[in-house]
């Protein structure tokens, strides 16, 4: 039976799709059969970040409407054998995702897959609510910035009251905090909220800290999830994050200002 993990945030542009791609890839790299679903309605992003934009034939809504079956819509990743992607629809109909339809597809996927990662769109409208509804665990992506923290708090409220587990009185969704675009230098200067500050306000367990990194833009440019760039700080931080998600105890890195050697200063780290 598959574990359903939603990657959500409330706020837009904080790193949900980047994180879904990285975490999904990381879990698949460990041998688990993994599928990442793009829950956006109308704007497709996951396929671009994963580098499979030219292989999209059928999408999530096609499958819900019976225009195609899962096998036809799922895109197999060319780099990792156990990784699949279900792209988002480009419809403009916000009611295109029905609860029954989504449930049917998740059940079908759960028979074959070990992990289902739901990449949520921003906001609290139907795409976002549908992405979190069936989740067992949630990765709440937050930037150390005021509006992101408040929106994450809002989304946490939704997770604890508007999910299927909440409605059916089941044990709640397991919530994890993923702090992205962290810049230790600015934290030290007192210009940026620290890990402790965000943790105190949101009061959920810290899953990972991803440093602000140039590697992220390079990754999306090339259509390679950043976790595959194992030399980069962001890539390594995502590897640590996946390890913790799978239950391992990994100390947190990239929290402190690094002393850059001369070579690193010239070529960038």
């Amino acid at each position: 039976m598959a574990k359903i993990i939603v990657v959500t945030s409330g706020k837009g542009g904080v790193g949900k799709t980047t994180s879904s791609a990285a975490i999904g890839t990381g879990i698949a790299m460990r041998g688990f059969k993994t599928v990442i679903i793009d829950f956006d309605i109308g704007l497709r992003n996951l396929d671009l970040i994963m580098g499979c934009e030219r292989r999209v034939v059928y999408d999530f809504v096609n499958v819900i409407n019976g225009e195609a079956n899962l096998k036809q819509a799922l895109i197999k990743d060319k780099r990792i054998e156990t990784l699949f992607i279900l792209p988002a629809s480009q419809t403009r109909d916000k009611d295109a995702l029905s609860k029954e339809g989504v449930e049917r597809i998740l059940n079908e996927l759960a028979e074959e897959f070990d992990y289902i990662i739901c990449d949520s769109p921003a906001g609290i409208e139907s795409g976002a609510m549908m992405a979190l509804y069936f989740a067992d665990e949630a990765v709440v992506v937050t930037n150390p910035e005021v509006s992101s923290v408040r929106d994450s708090d809002r989304i946490l409220g939704m997770l604890s009251s508007k999910s299927r587990r909440a409605e059916q009185g089941l044990p709640g969704i397991k919530e994890h905090l993923l702090l992205t675009r962290y810049n230790p230098e600015r934290v030290v200067k007192g210009e940026m909220l620290s890990v402790e500050d965000v943790g105190e306000i949101l009061a959920i367990k810290l899953l990972g800290v991803i440093p602000e990194s140039q590697a992220v833009l390079n990754a999306s440019n090339s259509g390679q999830p950043v976790i595959l760039d194992q030399d980069s700080d962001a890539g390594q931080a995502y590897l640590d994050t996946v390890a913790r998600l799978l239950g391992e105890d990994v100390p947190f890195r990239f929290l402190n200002v690094e002393k850059k050697g001369l070579l690193k200063r010239i070529f960038g780290g």
């Binding site: 408040r150 708090d153 409220g157 604890s160 306000i201 009061a203």
Partner: peptide
Amino acid sequence: EQNIRSGQQIYAKGADLVIRGTVGAGA
């Protein structure tokens, strides 16, 4: 027995209210 998140509202009618947690901004 939980944190009250932004956007949530709790009303204890005719009673005292005890929150074993934090009441977030916007709650």
